[in-house]
Design a protein around this nucleic acid. Sequence first.
DNA 1: ATTGGCACTCAGACAGAGCGAGTGCTAACG
DNA 2: CGTTAGCACTCGCTCTGTCTGAGTGCCAAT
Lengths: 340, 340
Amino acid sequence: MIPERSLEVLRAIVHDYIETNQPVGSKSLVERHAFGVSPATIRNDMALLEDEKLIVAPHTSSGRVPTDKGYRLFVDRLGEVKPLSIPERSAIETFMQGSADLDEVLGRTVRLLSQLTNQVAMVQYPSLERGSVKSVELLKVDDQQALLILVTDISRIQQHLIHFDRDLDDEFVANLRAQMVGALQGISLSQVATKLEDFASKFAVNRQGAVNLVLDNLLEQVDANRQDKVILAGTANLARREEDFKGSISPMLEAIEEQVVLLKLIQEMQAEQHGVALRIGIENEIEQFSTTSVVLSGYEKEGAEVAKLGVLGPTRMDYASNIAAVRAVSRYLTQALGGF
Amino acid sequence: MIPERSLEVLRAIVHDYIETNQPVGSKSLVERHAFGVSPATIRNDMALLEDEKLIVAPHTSSGRVPTDKGYRLFVDRLGEVKPLSIPERSAIETFMQGSADLDEVLGRTVRLLSQLTNQVAMVQYPSLERGSVKSVELLKVDDQQALLILVTDISRIQQHLIHFDRDLDDEFVANLRAQMVGALQGISLSQVATKLEDFASKFAVNRQGAVNLVLDNLLEQVDANRQDKVILAGTANLARREEDFKGSISPMLEAIEEQVVLLKLIQEMQAEQHGVALRIGIENEIEQFSTTSVVLSGYEKEGAEVAKLGVLGPTRMDYASNIAAVRAVSRYLTQALGGF
DNA sequence: ATTGGCACTCAGACAGAGCGAGTGCTAACG
DNA sequence: CGTTAGCACTCGCTCTGTCTGAGTGCCAAT
């Protein structure tokens, strides 16, 4: 429906606007891109694009700026994904090297991603919905305290110190531990709650208080696994590109600080093409993000997607390279997680 | 040396400027504060204060603004610490309630402090320089992996998963664990390294590789304890008060994201009066913070200061209430830590 | 020491002019 | 019929000049 050349014009507008941050006019357009036609012709095309709400003029008789819809068309049909440069690739590789535990890997990943894109980067912790219990431990630390440890199969380890109101005896601790291991080892996290229902009844009545205390803690840890978490890096990049956001950036900073908001956002977004999910400006239902775009991609562990990672920045962003970066980093992360 | 009334004038200037964010002039000053003298008199006093570099006129013939030196004199000699309001106190108390482990307590604390002050709040993790080993555990997780756990007396718990290149046998693990517990339990963190020097030689030669792997991990954890960490909240408050910062806020956001910079800052600052350390504007040697003030206070565990907490904001901040808030929160935190 | 008076300064608000980039329309062209 | 040149027009910017008001410093009088 929209003629080929008009689409080329749109591509050129998006390109130039991202580069210069100025509304782009017909004349400069023909100067910078060899269209082989005159400005007047381009103007006709631009009028068409404006009718389609793909571009808009900030004020009468100024150049045009892509709308959210324009960006959308651009990424869906026009933007090739820029492959990463060699230095970028090697940066990723050195960054990922020699990381040990999950926290560290994810921490590095998020910083890497923010450096690569100059945007705010976010990495969601693996959801352990489908995870399973690898091992449970109960360690007596001193007379009234014990450490409960839960290791899941994605090598996430959590521990929690439990205070008892009576002294613990070794035998009881050992017994309780053995029972828990027996009941839980290998089962999936979602089944833990049901599996533990009658658990306390196996113990002497005067012990049940302590047993339940431990079980409550355990369930809390399982729940903490289910309830996701996001880490961020590069918040300063928001401020650096403040001109790109209409109003002030403080509502956005606030929203970003709210885990809940971010998680909701991440939850809602589903991958489109290239295995990448993208929301542009107003497409985000969240009001604070109406001038930002979000690029997300899932990453995997043992063939199954466990969580997402991506960047958040102004709608006027370099989609081609950001999408490429997010995709590449998610692949490297998947690869790194394979090692666990 | 500076007459009493001139100091009163300075106090009034600081007060009004903090409130209005406008350079304050002689006329409005006599209107808002019952000095009982005419504007002309105040002008003489202001000229004096200007000679002393306590205030400065942004441009010829405008009102005056306190200099960093002026703020300094203000807090040192003039500002009474505002006691917190009842709602504020109860907010602190409910906030602190029902927190379990250290991470959670500190997390709540930092958010509380940022809400209370409307500034960027920071809480340093307890330095374990003087901490000691409460217990060490080594748990076999599967054939080739074991979990090394270090519990210190401030109830900070760290764990790390170790991969071995050969299968582990239970006996070896139990033995190694017992040896480590025997050697380390109760000794201070700073002594761990020396204590372990000859440790590996007690084991069979073909085991020493594995032993050293574990020991290296352990030392790493001890080191991680020494190397401090800071958590932040309320970064959005920076953006909200952007007018207060000369240039852009992005260099500051960057500096804040750099743990190293913050830690250096915290390290350098020493408590002055009221048990609170204060750096105003240019007093911070760190360039990015030359338009910000930092209020810090130590918090304690078992009578000894273990780390610091505080806020960071524009030099034009309400020192009286911020100092009060930092002090109060640090006390409540000290109290909360007593429970561990 | 304090005060009233006065001349002076300067940032900020306001208005008008000129510029220039860019547009939409129309008529001519291949 | 798509393309183009020409042209009148629009409107945001920038520059300039003017005015205003808050505020100052100084001086002579109290």
